[in-house]
């Protein structure tokens, strides 16, 4: 038996290299297990395209992008980009952004733990002396379509059904996931903070600084960087 031939055939329609009909058991269980992982990972995408379409699409995807690691918690990270190039879905240009929201929620769920900055620290410390960084769970998406609203309508989140296109902030400050529309400039602020810029200089000119800070604090999106 050649393992390369087995591996190639199990993710294709090639003739069975061993076992004749029985080889289909392995082909079926590999496809079934990976499809089940994707179903669980992208429930809103599945609801939007329907179960049958989703499963057929998942089969195409998993053959093109089999997992590169045995950790299934994050398998599917390539799906949003792949969907954007998947011709049968070109009439749903917002779907990749919905998938990106679902993937970002998984990443935030499993990110490292850290204690979010208590807003009271801003009042008691010199803001320029505070060394801040994004919480490890922070995921910031910039959407061209109202993807957060579309996601919300397919994820039983009526509170977010009117969310506009624009920035979306996802965090998991303690153990529960948060998702909210973020004011314009939040992404740039977080990017500057992660470069080590002080908070006062991280807030972009021409943006609503109070709104950005309120969003970041209510999401627990900031941590105090440990002293070097």
């Amino acid at each position: 038996m050649s393992e390369p031939a087995f591996a190639a055939a199990v993710l294709s329609d090639a003739p069975p290299p061993v076992g004749a009909d029985r080889f289909e058991v392995y082909r079926g269980s590999v496809t079934g297990a990976l499809t089940a992982t994707l179903r669980e990972a992208f429930p809103a995408v599945r609801r939007l395209v329907g179960d049958a379409f989703f499963d057929a699409m998942a089969r195409e995807f998993l053959r093109a992008h089999p997992p590169r690691s045995p950790i299934m918690a994050l398998y599917g990270d390539a799906l949003p980009g792949w969907l954007a190039r998947f011709a049968p879905l070109s009439a749903l240009p917002w779907l990749p952004e919905v998938a990106a929201i679902e993937q970002a929620r998984r990443e935030a769920t499993h990110a490292a733990d850290a204690v979010s900055l208590d807003p009271a620290r801003l009042a008691e410390a010199d803001p320029d002396a505070l060394r801040l960084a994004p919480h490890p769970s922070v995921r910031l998406l910039r959407t061209r379509y109202p993807a957060l609203s579309i996601w919300a309508r397919n994820a039983e989140r009526p509170d977010l059904e009117a969310a506009p296109a624009g920035e979306v902030l996802i965090t998991r400050p303690a153990l529960s996931l948060q998702i909210a529309p973020a004011p314009n400039g939040t992404a740039d602020t977080l990017a500057a903070l992660s470069q080590g810029t002080a908070l006062g200089d991280a807030l972009p000119q021409g943006t609503d600084h109070a709104a950005i800070l309120a969003c970041l604090f209510s999401a627990g999106a900031l941590i105090e960087r440990p002293m070097p």
Binding site: M1, E3, P4, F6, A7, V10, L11, Y26, S29, V30, A33, L34, T37, P66, P67, R68, S69, P70, M72, Y75
Partner: peptide
């Protein structure tokens, strides 16, 4: 069993002689 080959992971327990 084996479950990976050439960097791909199959999420299944595959057989060997």
């Amino acid at each position: 069993a084996w479950s990976s080959h050439g960097g791909a992971y199959f999420n299944d327990l595959l057989p060997l002689p």
